[in-house]
Amino acid sequence: MITLAGLPLRIVPVQVMQATRPHRMLERQWMVNRAGGWMVLLSGFFEPLFYLLSIRVGFGALVGDVEDGGRLIPYAEFVAPALMAASAMNGALYESTMNVFFRLKYDKVYDAALATPLTSGDVALGEIGYATIRGALYSSAFLVTMWALGMTSSAWAIGMLPVAILISFAFSAIGMAATTYMRSWADFEYVPSIMLPMFLFSATFYPLSSYGDWQWVVQISPLYHGVAMTRSLNLGEWSWAFGGHLVVLVAMALFGVTLTAKRIERLLLP
């Protein structure tokens, strides 16, 4: 049984502290996928392959090396960890926005679950957990592809996986919390308009230094903190900043889970 009751975290609300059955929501997903939903996940494995191939074959040769933190690295190795972070974000957000919205408003999956001993915290943690798993699967595929194409720079690269899981969890939590505010499908038009700039301008394709005076804008992007972590792990280079990035993502995850549980209570248990 998964329980958070033992954690000495006063900031986590009672809904989440009392969650004792979030794994039931995962079980539901497992049953749904068993009935033929695995194809959705499979599509996520091809994406990284195409991305990485295009960079290795095309951009890499054109751009040459990039200077980041006073060190020259081949462009492919510079970009790949950032794309891995982005894939964790994408997988998480696909699941925690549209799919969650469908289950929330149309399939009434959560209404049905809340009539049983399950609580709003169980639903929030379980659903965020599943979106995290989806993001984590995408990034695992990414990591394997990177390694197979020789784009990992150090043995520390394996550490990118837990970081990708954290990125995925943070974005799942925020994504699901945001979804509880969506009124109709039309509201989802905003999702790409936030995701795309975040994808492009999180120091994904060029180093933070190239933004000059506008670096602070990039640092607002949560994805930037994920990218910074995966990149430093890929190179096996450490700095105190790593801890800072970690704190940002953990805070985001906690905030998202808390808000989601509260919103579910407000929407479905009035």
Partner: peptide, 19 residues
């Protein structure tokens, strides 16, 4: 509030798992 993504039997089994 039946789960449209599951069969009749799986709806029942899943619900039991919630308990």
């Amino acid at each position: 509030q039946l789960d449209e993504q599951l069969t009749v039997e799986d709806n029942m089994i899943l619900y039991g798992r919630y308990f």
